[in-house]
Design a protein around this nucleic acid. Structure first.
Length: 802
RNA sequence: GCCGCGGUGGCGGAAUUGGUAGACGCGCUGGACUUAAAAUCCAGUUCUAGCGAUAGAGUGAGGGUUCGAUUCCCUCCCGCGGCACCA
């Protein structure tokens, strides 16, 4: 009887005892580094959806092991972050304690599934020996001016009481708690990720093995736009408005200029503005709008003219009106735009509402009819544009930028939607930022030999809400001496965001216990880059951008030898609840892997999750489906050994299956690999449910990556005294795969009318003879004229008749 | 609105350098075994007509290319994911 409980326990203990999954840094074998996105260990534990990706990489890793690779397939925990801290506040438990309990539980759950992890390489982002190197990298960035203090308004979550990066928002709300985010000016640490924008974009081309949709999402997130910055001088002042545009070619159609209400320029122009009270009221009204209200595309555009202010178009010297309006964003470009209502939808809408002049200066290239009720936004031929008239848009842009640069009235400019990374959080449970503030010396780095700068114990983790972290209340930690001048100084009390530790963890698995370097260069060279990275698509524009940035910085300072951290990337599809909804406590549809493993076994769970459907697609859990897979394993358990040679049909299918299973695993097509093994087992049953020992062993070897426990058990039962995973992947015999007879289809006018069982590689003339002898075909050909015959070798014969 | 992915039986899905649509699994129907049930085994299962051989229809909709289209092209519809006043 297939007793999965004892059998799985037994082999897990055995693997642990023999250290089967211990990974050496030996160079005698080719290496393969396959990585899962490490989890945040929450108090709830794993549900069956979490390990889907881990099971897939585990199967892949086991195949690679059997194919002779030195495989690194590690696991660790991303354990800093808000949930642990919020839990700590509620239950008065130190986040470290809660985190340790959760990590132990996660590890227990993962071990139940029989995964190949070498736990001696586990990393934990909250371990001071780990975050020492997170802090170290931060200081290196600080030295190079890539980490700096900024006072620009940032996203502020009033409920989590901390500043957030753009990447932490969803629909203008806090990704963690769903609160409406406010704009709040405050001191913060920022990483200049925009310095790397061009490389982050361009190097996507060097990643052919990333899924294209993920690269697309990154391209849009980086959002590169080429254009120009242009100075519009202001009449009667020595001030000017700098605008950014990608359509200089439309500038002769500029009939007003708009600046964002928050733009500093507005205050500077106060003396010129004749309707100041109205302007002030508008600014106040905008401030009170939530981000969501402001960005609602359906709302009417609003704005106020700055009466008394006039801007001069540098191309034609024309003076135009100036507005403030909240459809212009202060955070992008220069926070000001030239409005060309004839050729921009947003300007068109605004101009319609406020009755402003709409002046067309671009005509369609091929006399198509223009729809006069909307803006014409395509490229075309310039008209009424002075010396630039009659030029084509693209050429005009080049010429006009040249003119601007010559006249010193503007310049070529590239802008990005990507914004610098707001890197400080006013919270407790994160890496302390290793900076000291000295009244005399300014911001000073904590000396490298004082790293790690550890998190101090604290009475209350409650965020103060004043924009200060809870660390600010610990006087004897905050007050220190300046490393530069020795005078009294204060420590930085902000901590790093959750994304910091996960930006480089894959490097630490290579050398997890090194306390003199982030990673040993020799080991780094051996293992890097990660050959294959598997995880959720929700990280496309967060973790995966941050990690690529962090890695490129480490490359620049020669800590790593590759420009990109992850050579190949695949997204895992979600497992939904049985009701088709996302698994969550809220819907009561969570399936706990512990229970599934107990009742059906880890091998059934593994096999079922792979059989559910295509790996990258979402699908609903089905306990019925799981039971089907369990039955399949039982049938395997009951296959008997036979002293006789196996039937040719079975041998042929076995070799085909060996070939297909390896190919499918490498392409992450697990569902069809499982299906192929089912077809084989059906054939074995039809042939009497017996296999010759040599073939039985081969079958166990291809099953082993999917169902390691059962395979190991049956492998031992046939007297093997070493692990099945130390055996080489079986070779298939190409001669045995070849079919001797095949089914060939005869079509009449493209419709199948008969099947012929014929020898492989049969010639057309012979097929024709056979077809003409077939009763059904005869009937169809009767009294008809044959126009054409199409013959596809070993596939079909199509007879076209009239 | 823009970008990306997808739409195939009752359900999950398989099959694309264009060549038997529905593999495999679930479910369902009938049968064997059993006092009975469960489990297991056997047979069937896209729809329509027919006892059957067989015929017709059929991969979101409509057109096109082709001897032949789930696969390629055009125009739509629907679902999911991402971005969203980025000038």
């Amino acid at each position: 009887m297939y007793d999965h409980q004892n059998l799985e326990k037994k082999w897990q203990a055995e693997w642990q005892k023999t250290k089967l999954y211990k990974v050496g840094d030996g160079q005698e074998k080719p290496k393969y580094y396959i990585l899962d996105m490490f989890p945040y260990p929450s108090g709830e534990g794993l549900h069956v959806g979490h390990p889907k990706g881990y099971i897939a990489t585990d199967i892949f890793a086991r195949l690679k092991m059997m194919q002779g690779y030195n495989v690194l397939h590690p696991m660790g925990f991303d354990a800093f972050g808000l949930p642990a801290e919020n839990y700590a506040i509620k239950n008065k438990i130190h986040p470290r304690v809660a985190t340790e309990v959760n990590m132990a539980n996660y590890r227990r759950q993962l071990e139940l599934l029989g995964l190949t992890y070498d736990w001696e390489r586990q990393v934990n982002t909250t371990d001071p020996e780990y975050y020492k190197w997170t802090q170290w990298t931060f200081l290196k960035m600080f030295e190079q001016g890539l980490a700096f203090e900024s006072y620009e308004p940032i996203n502020w979550c009033p409920s989590c009481k901390t500043g957030l990066a753009n990447e932490d928002l969803e629909d203008g709300k806090c990704e963690r708690c769903g609160s409406q985010v406010e704009q709040k000016p405050m001191r913060q640490w920022v990483l200049r990720i925009t310095n790397y924008a061009d490389r982050l974009l361009a190097d996507l081309e060097k990643l052919p093995d990333w899924e294209e949709p993920i690269k697309d999402m990154q391209r849009h997130w980086i959002g590169r736009s080429e254009g120009a910055e242009i100075d519009f001088s202001l009449k009667n002042t020595d001030l000017s408005i700098k605008v950014f545009t990608t359509r200089v070619d439309t500038i002769f159609g500029c009939t007003y200029v708009v600046i964002a209400p928050e733009n500093k320029l507005v205050a500077e122009l106060k003396d010129q503005i004749k309707n100041w009270s109205e302007v002030e009221a508008y600014i106040e009204q905008v401030k009170n709008k939530s981000n969501l209200e402001r960005t609602d595309l359906n709302k009417d555009k609003t704005g106020v003219e700055l009466v008394g202010v006039e801007a001069v178009n540098p191309f034609n010297g024309e003076a135009v009106k100036v507005f403030i309006a909240d459809y212009v964003l202060n955070s992008y470009g220069t926070g000001a735009v030239m409005a060309v209502p004839a050729h921009d939808e947003r300007d068109w809408e605004f101009a319609q509402k406020y009755n402003l002049i709409i002046k067309p200066v671009i005509m369609p290239k091929n006399s198509e009819i223009i729809d006069k009720s909307v803006a014409f936004t395509a490229d075309g031929i310039l008209v009424d544009s002075g010396n630039f008239s009659d030029l084509d848009s693209a050429l005009a842009r080049t010429r006009m930028i040249e003119w601007l640069e010559r006249e010193k009235k503007g310049n070529r400019k590239v802008n990005y939607k990507l914004q610098d990374w707001v890197f400080s959080r006013q919270r407790y449970w994160g890496e302390p930022i290793p900076i000291i503030h000295c009244a005399k010396c300014g911001t000073v780095a904590v000396p490298y030999d004082q790293l790690p700068l550890t998190l101090p114990e604290v009475e209350s983790y409650e965020p103060s809400g004043t924009g200060e972290s809870p660390l600010a209340t610990i006087a004897d930690w905050v007050n220190t001496t300046c490393p530069k001048c020795g005078g009294p100084a204060q420590r930085e009390t902000n901590t790093m965001p959750q994304w910091a530790g996960s930006s480089w963890y894959y490097l630490r698995y290579i050398d997890p216990k090194n306390n003199s370097a982030l990673v040993d260069p020799v080991k780094e060279k051996y293992w890097s880059p990660v050959d294959f990275y598997v995880g959720g698509a929700e990280h496309a524009t967060r973790h995966l951008i941050y990690a690529r940035f962090w890695h490129k910085f480490l490359y620049d300072i020669k800590v790593v030898s590759s420009e990109e951290p992850f050579a190949k990337l695949k997204a895992v599809g979600l497992i939904m609840g049985e009701d088709g909804r996302k698994m969550s406590k809220r819907w009561g549809n969570v399936i706990n892997p512990d229970e599934v493993v107990e009742k059906y076994g880890a091998d059934s769970l593994r096999l079922y999750e792979m059989f559910m459907g295509p790996f990258s697609e979402a699908g609903a859990w089905s306990t019925n489906g799981l039971v089907g897979v369990r039955k399949f394993l039982e049938r395997i358990y009951n296959i008997a050994l036979s002293p006789e040679a196996d039937a040719p049909v079975v041998v042929n299918l076995l070799h085909k299956t060996i070939k297909k299973v390896a190919e499918d695993i490498l392409e992450f097509k697990f569902n069809t690999a499982v299906s192929a093994m089912m077809i084989l087992v059906n054939a074995i049953s039809d042939a009497g449910g017996k296999l010759n020992e040599a073939n039985y062993a081969r079958f166990l070897q291809i099953l082993a990556p999917f169902a390691p426990h059962l395979s190991e058990e049956l492998w031992a039962k046939i007297g093997q005294n070493y692990s099945i995973f130390q055996s080489p992947w079986p070779a298939y015999d190409p001669a045995l795969i070849k079919d001797e007879t095949i089914t060939l289809v005869v079509q009449i006018n493209g419709k199948v009318r008969a099947n012929l069982s014929v020898p492989a590689d049969i010639a057309e003339s012979e097929v024709l003879t056979l077809a003409q002898a077939d009763e059904t075909i005869k009937k169809w050909l009767e009294g008809k004229e044959v126009i054409k015959k199409i013959f596809v070798k070993n596939k079909l014969l199509n007879i076209v008749i009239k």
